[in-house]
């Protein structure tokens, strides 16, 4: 993370585990000596709504809990149309994104009131709004492990694998033990490792 402050947005749909994912990521970064601020939107929005965590990282200062418009450096999206929503507001020509390709349909799509964007066009739009994007099948990977909720950790692993976050498997293990439970260390580090393998390290 050469930039300071470094602004990360973890986005998805209520129930996909983005709050826990961003908390673990933030916990590791605090351990590494950073000032981290995370702003979360949930509450009523957890019931099928868009959920977004703003993770702000700085060596120098404790930042506010919201990222200014057009100021995201890294977007980690658990759902592709949520990636488009976040990039539309916070993306800039320098943003890097990691996007889980599995859609979660809004209730308005289920009801037939609205159409979900066509996959190819959606991915093309996401690509246009970033400097670089990694499309990852995180849910597929998590389902192979037996629980779709692990997609969040798979994506964090992918971000680390791509050299976008200074997080190692050991760091994550310590954060899971401190902030969640020692019993959950193994399953989470496995998901992290599987995520790391999904992307080429280009740095």
């Amino acid at each position: 993370m050469e930039k300071d402050p470094y602004n990360i947005i973890v986005t998805g749909v209520g129930g996909q585990g983005n709050v826990v994912g961003s908390q673990l990521m933030g916990a590791v970064l605090v351990e590494l000596g950073y000032k981290v601020t995370i702003g979360e939107t949930y509450g009523a929005t957890q019931r099928g709504g868009s959920v977004m965590s703003h993770v702000r990282v700085s060596k120098a200062q404790q930042l506010g809990p919201l990222i200014p418009p057009r100021s995201a450096d890294l977007v980690i999206a658990l759902e592709p149309s949520e990636a488009a929503r976040v990039l539309g507001q916070f993306g800039n020509p320098g943003t890097v994104a990691l996007v889980n390709t599995r859609p979660v349909y809004p209730v308005d799509v289920i009801s037939g009131d609205r159409a979900y964007p066509e996959a190819d066009l959606l991915l093309e739009k996401i690509r246009f709004l970033c400097k670089q994007v990694y499309f990852v099948e995180a849910t597929k990977e998590a389902l192979e492990m037996g629980n779709p909720i692990l997609a969040n950790i798979v994506l964090i692993g992918a971000a680390a694998g791509a050299g976008l976050l200074p997080i190692s498997e050991d760091h994550l293990a310590r954060a899971v033990a401190d902030y969640m439970s020692p019993n959950l260390v193994e399953i989470n580090t496995t998901a992290f490792r599987r995520g790391m393998r999904l992307v080429p390290n280009e740095r």
Binding site: S81, A84, G88, N92, P106, V107, P117, K125, L129
Partner: peptide, 29 residues
Amino acid sequence: TAPDAPSDFETAAKEALESFAPARSLAFC
């Protein structure tokens, strides 16, 4: 003023919000 993004980026961003990010209405689980 803060620096703006290029105008073609702004156009694409607006389009992403309007056509590629369907609203998620609140609903019972």
